[in-house]
Design a protein around this nucleic acid. Structure first.
Lengths: 242, 242
DNA sequence: TGCAGTCTGTGCGTAAACGTACAAAAGAAA
DNA sequence: TTTCTTTTGTACGTTTACGCACAGACTGCA
């Protein structure tokens, strides 16, 4: 079997595949197919059985929770650091969320039965999957915390960071509408938050493109509430004048 | 080895243990210890390595996310339907959340190394754990959705339901303060929501006790937004008068 | 070049939850 | 019974996000 150099190097572009020992990776190699995922493409519909496992490279994928009323919110983000859809390994017949592409790009596609076969050998793949599962759960728990305790602007900062972490440039191709779907808020609310971030010099955007200008500041704003920064001095002032 | 009848029947009180095949269960049996968990008892601190696995019977346990700023929010609830702490199996050294008891009661305690040993055999325990992990992730995703799209009153209804599902009576021993910690809101906000539910005849509470009077209505109110029910007629009225 | 479709900006009133501060009541302990 | 502690009730201004409605602006396609 002839394998092109490009192909070989690409496999390691996904951290998960890269972490597999050589023998396991070699067993999978013949079945790995490099595919291009288009933004908004649904890899696995809510309630369906996933047929493929994807190892994103430049693509970024969302695990999107959809309520009975149709409201959406993103539970977690997967890029070249991970795998979708884990539910294929978990033994459940249906996925509890929709798996949808957020950033167009490449990914390796692996037929589900091949993945399960290797999984059932109980080798390194199993351990890696478990480890990744925990990371995913941690991410989901943090999403809960952010949703409850942080302003939308902060949620937006975090979400942009999550994209940057899985990217090699500072350009994010998303509309406010798309971000609204992920964050579970109206488009206008996203626009308002984005506007403030632009004014602060953190980002610059235009029609579906967002450029992060100051990544450090973005990270800061995600965790530090702007209001609490401005209120602290105000309180100190009261003490001085009291 | 002599095993009391009480002991034998209790093992099946946890759905997870009950689902294990006899041979695997028998291997674990000598190491299972029936313990009483006190409300607010911390089973595993955030960042610590869990030393025991617990299979709740009448106890109910929370997976509590804690932010750097100290804000808390419950990511998931575990009762006699499941196990804590999964992170012991996942290969990570530290738990991403705090595991804390919400309802006093009994549970089986199993030393971590025994659990891992059995886990590594790759038998039914492995499959069950994976299956349960997915259920937990689904629960966390739903928590995200509720936090974003539902009112606190609805979140409260859901949380009370989650307790009832893991109980055999309609009495919940929790203060508004405790619920505030779980739901990630102020105590006053919980009080206000609880007051309305009491007025609606759904619950009745007094100093740390909550009795659910109408479970069906509770379930309805968790998913159907009260505002949308009252607004729909209002809109119809507008159409008629236009 | 011009039209169409998609994005983003803006304005309004409304409702939920916040922070803060204090009062009242219910149990528990002395 | 009385005191103390915990739990719950109440109030008020503020902020965030909502729902709705429409205007403006950018891009691609004809």
């Amino acid at each position: 079997m002839s394998i092109t150099p490009t192909y070989i190097s690409s496999v390691h572009a996904n951290e998960f595949l890269a972490a597999l020992p050589a023998n396991e990776l070699n067993r999978l190699r013949p079945h790995l197919k490099l595919v291009y995922l288009q933004s908004q493409q649904v890899l696995c519909e809510l309630g369906d059985t996933p047929t493929y496992v994807y190892f994103p490279i430049t693509a970024i994928v969302s695990l999107l929770h959809i309520s009975e009323a149709g409201e959406t919110s993103e539970a977690a983000v997967v890029g070249n650091d991970g795998v979708v859809d884990l539910s294929l390994f978990m033994g459940a017949k249906t996925a509890p969320h929709q798996t949808i592409v957020q950033a167009s790009g490449q990914a390796f596609q692996l037929p589900g039965h091949i993945a399960r076969e290797e999984f059932n050998r109980g080798g390194a793949l199993l351990g890696l999957l478990l480890h990744y599962t925990q990371a995913l759960m941690a991410q989901m728990a943090e999403t809960v915390g952010f949703t409850r305790h942080r302003s939308l602007q902060q949620c937006l900062c975090r979400r942009l960071e999550q994209s940057l972490e899985r990217h090699d440039n500072n350009e994010i191709e998303m509309t406010h509408e798309m971000l609204g779907q992920l964050l579970g808020v109206r488009r206008e609310t996203v626009s308002a938050a984005a506007f403030k971030l632009q004014q602060a010099g953190v980002i610059r955007y235009r029609r579906g493109h967002i450029a992060v200008l100051d990544r450090q500041l973005l990270a800061d704003m995600a965790s530090v509430d702007e209001m609490k920064r401005t209120k602290a001095p105000a309180r100190a002032f009261q003490l001085l004048t009291a």
